[in-house]
Amino acid sequence: MRIPEDVLRAAGPVAEWCEDHEGLSGDVWRAGSSYVKRSGAAEHTRLRWLGQHFEVPEIRVFSGDWLVLADVGAPSLTKADPVLAGTVMGEVLRALHSLPVTSCPFDAGVAVLVEEARHNVEAGLVDPADFDDDNLGATPQELLDRLVATAPPSEDLVVTHGDFCPSNVLLRPDGSTVLIDVARLGVSDRHRDLALVHRELSGQAADAFDRAYGRTPHPPALAWYRLVDEFF
């Protein structure tokens, strides 16, 4: 694997590149004070757009399909107090979902998600061993057939993150937040994000999120968008 010179310069003089971070935008390495992503084109364009509205990691270099991002230096909400984590996530998601959809150029509607899921199944990119417990034993094609058959007839469109979970919301000591791993950001039904939140949070964290977000989700929509996530 040949790494472009401008990527190496931006990453800085490090003795070792550590592949210790998993992201949706492709291969990810921790290199000194940077994160280096391969196949980061989708995330690059979304970071540039989202950065007009929210704090996101600084882009140090984008070269070909290589993306170098500065380490924000703030922890995620993964190990935060449950009430704090749920509250912050609810407030951030409410703000994100309040952005005007007409300003966002990225389409992640039902038709787009279904076609991306179909592509991933046909390309052999869906691993059934990674399915949620209630889908274990099913084949990717069986899940795709179910996805198509149960697709919602309408959408409550907002600007969605696409992978909204505690690990992708960073919280600074001053209370400000940073959104990361935005390669799947786009206009979609709000339940695309809510499905992952309700999968990841429980108990006090889930209750705090619901209070901060301020809307009651629709269970069938949660189930469909959670099914969508099995293909990515």
Rank of each mutant, 00 (worst) to 15 (best):
4 P>V: 03
6 D>A: 14
6 D>P: 07
10 A>P: 08
13 P>W: 13
13 P>C: 15
15 A>L: 10
15 A>Y: 04
15 A>D: 11
16 E>V: 06
20 D>R: 07
23 G>K: 08
25 S>N: 10
25 S>F: 01
26 G>R: 02
26 G>T: 00
27 D>P: 10
28 V>K: 04
30 R>L: 14
32 G>T: 07
34 S>I: 08
34 S>C: 15
35 Y>E: 13
36 V>Q: 02
36 V>C: 00
38 R>D: 00
39 S>D: 06
40 G>I: 04
42 A>Y: 01
43 E>F: 11
43 E>L: 01
43 E>R: 09
44 H>I: 11
47 L>V: 13
48 R>S: 15
49 W>S: 00
51 G>M: 08
52 Q>I: 11
54 F>Y: 08
55 E>L: 14
55 E>K: 14
56 V>P: 09
56 V>G: 11
60 R>Y: 09
61 V>M: 07
66 W>P: 01
66 W>G: 01
71 D>C: 12
71 D>H: 13
72 V>Q: 13
72 V>N: 11
72 V>P: 11
74 A>Q: 14
75 P>Y: 12
76 S>H: 09
77 L>F: 01
78 T>P: 10
79 K>F: 14
83 V>K: 06
83 V>N: 10
85 A>I: 04
88 V>I: 07
89 M>E: 08
90 G>Q: 05
94 R>W: 06
95 A>W: 13
97 H>D: 07
98 S>K: 09
104 C>H: 00
104 C>A: 03
104 C>G: 03
108 A>I: 04
111 A>E: 15
115 E>N: 05
116 E>V: 07
117 A>T: 00
122 E>C: 04
123 A>P: 01
129 A>P: 06
131 F>E: 07
133 D>Q: 14
136 L>I: 10
136 L>T: 04
137 G>T: 00
138 A>H: 02
139 T>L: 03
142 E>M: 05
142 E>H: 01
